[in-house]
Design a protein around this nucleic acid. Structure first.
Lengths: 337, 337
DNA sequence: TAGCAAATTGACAGCGCTGTCATTCCTGTC
DNA sequence: GACAGGAATGACAGCGCTGTCAATTTGCTA
């Protein structure tokens, strides 16, 4: 039979309410009592019933991780974030659920409301690109649901985690510049995603700092997908004066660029240097391996969740934590011939 | 304020218990009453409180999806399964949680018990390779937790979903045979995984059917990872008489084989045909693209969850459903020179 | 050592549902 | 038209915990 809080109370010779206090780390329990209750819990392997706690306490101990399953980023990226979020939730004995939430279609607010009413999460972790969807943020605030964001575009009072993508982007372009490249192309991601903006800004910054005027023909639109990388590269390779290096805003597109290079008989890195962003497992498995920027995604998920849990547990306001990036210089970039 | 079951009851002029019956699709409610209650629920946008239902009814409406985060298969594979499971759960208004469960370390039964006691899932979906871990299955039965498996090794009374991997494997080797290959190597996955066994068996079957005696030097052990594919390939390429084709038990290893081929100056598919298994997104992004077997992973997750939910909802025993595979013939395989 | 405020502990109701069992309402039969 | 038997409905307690507030104990001060 299940061990209940009442059983623990009896074993520790205190009232159920006191056990509850210990369980929830509340104040006003003497150390001696706390010890005794803890020992009893331990001895009986007591497991509080989540539904009972939730019903009586009007909180669910549930964190929902939301992602956009319409134009979502690479699944490995999300999987890593999810892993980190889960780790943090586990550590604080919260449970986690993952929920896709298509931003397209007008009824997403209704779907979001349904999600909240159906599952009552105490808080929400937002992943790109839905970190920046204003109507959703507004609704979260209206419904008073705490949330933390992974790589939000807007800063302000947002809590969560970011990386300085612009600086990372600049760094990788500087790497190409150091190799002697001057005609460096950039393949942009989906236009309104924060990631796309920062990475483009970093590219421009590096180019400007090197005194190179922007050539509009070298900056082409992509959509974060492999196919869009192929298309962008074809466009670039058809240019009268071809780039000697391409920096794609993510690894999937960079892979597309390498693929297209094969089509055009261009050897990477001999005829063309290619670099990406994200350090997906894929990037290491290409031949040659892809020069890219490593984001600590798992860690970022964990940090975002920890910031949220801090708020949920009443440990103050929470912050927007910045994590470091690291350049992964691999075989796909080389000195200009 | 929240709409409660009692409010619906008042609006429909019935007792709370009757509303409960309608909510749970129970018998012994006249159609007229049922309609009236349903209308009231709709009108008031009633959302049952999951914790209250769970507490009173002694069921959680929760399905846990378990995976091994120690030597787990490709994360895209799991992500797709997860997606399918989630879809099925949503359709039946169950919630889903994902839980890593390392099989290594002796205390996994304890961790499993904790998982059950902490979250009270009504049922569990098992993904490879933990579909076949006997002590876990035993414990599931002891604790009377219904479960469904994705690609279980053992059949029997198991419910869930499978694919005829052996036949698929045989088919892809036959494809190589038709191209004129005779020295066909196989890179095995982690030894005790069902996937490894079936794929090896299919390879052997095809070779035997073609009248080719097995050359032990051509069958090398891998571990489902990219790196193990590289290592296996190096071993194969060092052979006095090299294979003209390599069938790796999954795409990651096949990618490793292609990578090693680059190292050895072997052009794929001209000097070497390579094929894999799984049809990961990666396989389409390689140059040349990888010939492989497509598994409908998302669909498989959905089917496994549906079988489980059928049991949970008292709709009979559930089955082990078999889904079809499809060969994806791409650029990495070609006729022997 | 009495007297008071603050800290600690406990009694009790109730969170929103469902299980059990009693009651009422039908339907068909003789 | 009375009655058995089954279908439909409802009354009520209770799932396991926490919020509220009252009771008790403790630690100080005078």
């Amino acid at each position: 039979m299940r061990v209940r809080l009442e059983d623990v109370a009896r074993a520790a010779s205190v009232s159920p309410k006191t056990v509850s206090r210990v369980l929830n780390d509340e104040a006003n329990v003497t150390d001696a009592t706390r010890q005794r209750v803890r020992a009893a819990m331990e001895a009986m392997d007591y497991r509080p019933h989540p539904s009972a706690r939730s019903l009586a306490g009007n909180r669910s101990f549930l964190v929902a991780m939301l992602y956009d399953n319409n134009d979502n980023p690479a699944s490995t990226y999300l999987a890593e974030i999810q892993d980190g979020v889960l780790e943090a939730c586990d550590a604080h004995r919260y449970s986690m659920m993952v929920r896709p939430l298509r931003m397209s279609g007008g009824d997403f607010i209704r779907r979001f409301d349904a999600l909240i009413s159906d599952h009552h999460p105490d808080g929400v972790v937002l992943t790109p690109p839905i970190t920046d969807y204003a109507p959703l943020l507004k609704r979260l605030r209206e419904r008073n649901v705490p949330y933390a964001s992974v790589s939000p575009l807007r800063r302000g009072k947002i809590i969560g985690v970011t990386m300085d993508e612009q600086r990372a982007s600049r760094a990788i372009v500087e790497h190409l510049l150091e190799l002697g490249h001057r005609r460096i192309a950039h393949v942009i991601g989906i236009a309104d995603h924060g990631a796309s903006r920062w990475r483009l800004a970093g590219y421009r910054e590096a180019m400007a700092a090197a005194g190179l005027p922007e050539d509009p023909a070298l900056v082409v639109q992509g959509a974060f997908t492999f196919g869009s990388g192929v298309a962008a590269a074809r466009q670039l390779f058809s240019l009268a004066e071809r780039p000697t290096a391409v920096f794609a805003a993510n690894d999937d597109m960079a892979t597309g660029v390498m693929w297209a290079a094969g089509e055009y008989g261009l050897k990477v890195p001999h005829d063309l240097s290619v670099c990406g962003f994200d350090d997906t497992p894929l990037s290491r498995q290409l031949w040659p391996a892809l020069t890219t920027v490593q984001q600590p995604s798992r860690e970022m998920g964990k940090i975002a969740a920890e910031q949220l849990l801090g708020v949920l547990r009443g440990h103050g306001a929470g912050h927007l934590v910045q994590v470091p990036f690291s350049l992964q210089i691999r075989g796909s970039t080389a000195a200009v011939p």
